[in-house]
């Protein structure tokens, strides 16, 4: 599974403001088309699902194919209704998942 998931939010946020949520995770995103030096195909291993929740409600979701680069970076926009917690989950081909959270501090 991936490691070192990161969520970047603006330092200061006002209620009702639209912010950009930037995310990245360390992962090889192995396409399944490459071969090792012995000619053996390296099995596909990608993060295929990305889910973002704010205060438990889904605010954004993405499905990735092998065409997304290694260490997948994703940024999306969101209107912040008020303070809360951003929770982002990455799920890989094996069904393993990793979740990161970040406080949304509203000034």
């Amino acid at each position: 599974m991936g490691r070192n998931p990161r969520i970047k939010l603006p330092d200061t946020i006002k209620a009702g403001e639209v912010i950009e949520v930037k995310t990245v995770i360390t992962h090889v995103m192995e396409t399944g088309n490459r071969h090792d030096k012995n000619g053996q195909r390296i099995p596909r291993d990608i993060i295929n699902t990305f889910i973002a929740k704010f205060e438990g409600h889904e605010v954004f979701r993405a499905e990735f194919g092998p065409g997304i680069s290694a260490n997948p970076y994703l940024a999306f926009e969101m209107r912040v209704p008020g303070p809360g917690t951003m929770e982002i989950t990455w799920i890989d081909d094996h069904g393993a998942s990793i979740t990161a959270t970040a406080p949304v501090n509203v000034a």
């Binding site: 639209v18 930037k22 704010f54 605010v59 954004f60 979701r61 993405a62 499905e63 990735f64 194919g65 065409g67 997304i68 680069s69 997948p72 970076y73 994703l74 940024a75 999306f76 926009e77 969101m78 209107r79």
Partner: peptide, 16 residues
């Protein structure tokens, strides 16, 4: 990829 959006996003923009 496919990105799923809703009015909560306010701006239909993604980067990857």
């Amino acid at each position: 990829a496919t990105f799923h959006l809703s009015p909560v996003n306010a701006i239909a923009r993604v980067q990857s």
